[in-house]
Write a protein that binds this DNA or RNA. Structure first.
Lengths: 144, 144
DNA sequence: GTGTTCGTATTCACCGATAAACATACTGGT
DNA sequence: ACCAGTATGTTTATCGGTGAATACGAACAC
């Protein structure tokens, strides 16, 4: 279970060190793919297998499902942390997520999301405005 | 069951000591999340696990659910009390709740809330006014 | 009123994580 | 084979988190 938010910086070679808090959960080898809302999803190998299995269950018959599959799978890459706990972000993913020098790692249940710091801030601001609607949902599931 | 209100101070490294009254109830490890009305919620580990389990059931296919998950999970952090009974407040949470040097711990049934002292005072003043108005209304109709 | 104890606040010192800089190894091209 | 450019690995410095020690103050007992 990943939770929390961490800000790190890309070096000039597109490497970032993973937040300490996520290293054990992700393991050495992980899978990084295009996510939704212009961020990247990072899964541990085992979590990725579950996601991949779910995607396979989706019918081939529907055009939108095929598109979704392509979106997720073709954008995926296996990445490995080096001795210093850094991962290398592939070019196309860096571009996809519009990553600048500082990025944000966000833990969201079974995945870690990678955001451009600026994009993250504006997204968060938008989400926070919907706090009232959130509150209702929280009540529904009995969280609060 | 947490009750009561305590004022403590943050040191220059964003640590606060937990009120003695809450320590046993929260345990050593706890989870702190963004709450409503710009305060933070602190749950014991066991209470949090219940919330987390419910959140995991939600799909990531829907935009509002994704936002909801991100709001709660990325805004959360696992914190651990040190030997002196202090916890470290992460940067983004300190910012979210607008915490200054003095903060207020408020016990609210199964969770503890953390407020900036000033915000707490004005919130309380607002609530108290509403309580008076409500009492009057209740009196009018003979309820009290 | 004085002394004692417990909880909180403050300070300092240390260690580890991160980030930047640097060095080495590799690749493709000429 | 050599060079340029790029990728990968290593080292060092800085900063923030962490733990320990001390100081302060309130509550209680005598």
């Amino acid at each position: 279970m990943f939770i929390g938010e961490y800000e790190h910086t890309l070096d000039e070679k597109k490497r970032v060190s993973l937040p300490k808090a996520f290293r054990t959960g992700l393991g050495k080898k992980m899978v990084m793919t295009r996510g939704l809302d212009n961020c990247l999803f990072v899964y541990s190998k085992s979590a990725w297998e579950k996601v991949a299995a779910k995607l396979q269950e989706l019918s081939f018959a529907q055009a939108d499902t095929r598109g979704f599959n392509r979106f997720i799978l073709s954008g995926a890459a296996e990445v490995e942390a080096d001795a210093a706990g850094r991962i290398l972000i592939p070019d196309h993913q860096k571009e996809f997520a519009g990553l600048g020098k500082t990025v944000v790692f966000a833990g969201v249940s079974d995945r870690v999301e990678v955001w451009d710091a600026t994009a993250w801030k504006s997204y968060k601001a938008r989400i926070e405005k919907q706090a009232d609607a959130m509150a209702e949902k929280l009540g529904e599931i009995g969280a609060l």
